[in-house]
């Protein structure tokens, strides 16, 4: 009987302590997350205008300033062109050796995981 009472006491105290500690941990993690997000929302100090090397008189429209943490449309366009060009060059060199991972390998499977994840993250799409 003593042993059962001891076991029940251990269960109540043990699980109580574990839950209490983990609730505290959860609150701390939420606090850190909140501070982190708050730090990100703080607007950056205005930077000095970068010097340009455009020739005088050249027809040039100043790109729209991007929101903090965002890329300008010009930069996105430049990156897109670079990616397309790169893909075209690689396609031109197309050969069986271009395949980075064998179908059926673990790395190949990760692509399936990516598809599943993106599918799950689009709840607005009709199933």
């Amino acid at each position: 009987m003593d042993n059962i009472a001891f076991g029940l006491w251990m269960t109540v105290m043990g699980m109580g302590t574990v839950f209490l500690l983990l609730v505290l941990l959860m609150l701390m993690l939420r606090g850190i997350g909140w501070l982190d997000q708050r730090g990100k929302r703080t607007p950056p100090t205005p930077s000095h205008t970068a010097p340009t090397d455009h020739a005088a008189g050249e027809d040039f429209t100043e790109p729209e300033p991007a929101a903090p943490g965002e890329l300008t449309p010009e930069l996105i366009a430049a990156i897109s062109i670079a990616v397309i060009t790169h893909a075209r060059v690689r396609r031109g060199q197309a050969a069986p050796a271009m395949r980075q991972v064998q179908p059926g390998s673990q790395l190949f499977a990760s692509r399936w995981v990516s598809v599943g994840r993106s599918y799950q993250n689009q709840p607005w799409k009709a199933r």
């Binding site: 059962i4 076991g7 251990m10 574990v18 983990l22 959860m26």
Partner: peptide
């Protein structure tokens, strides 16, 4: 962070086995 609570629930087996 709320997943932390599930970690706690997964430890019940320790104490039930102890009994």
């Amino acid at each position: 962070p709320k997943m932390v609570l599930l970690g706690a629930a997964g430890q019940f087996g320790i104490f039930l086995t102890l009994i």
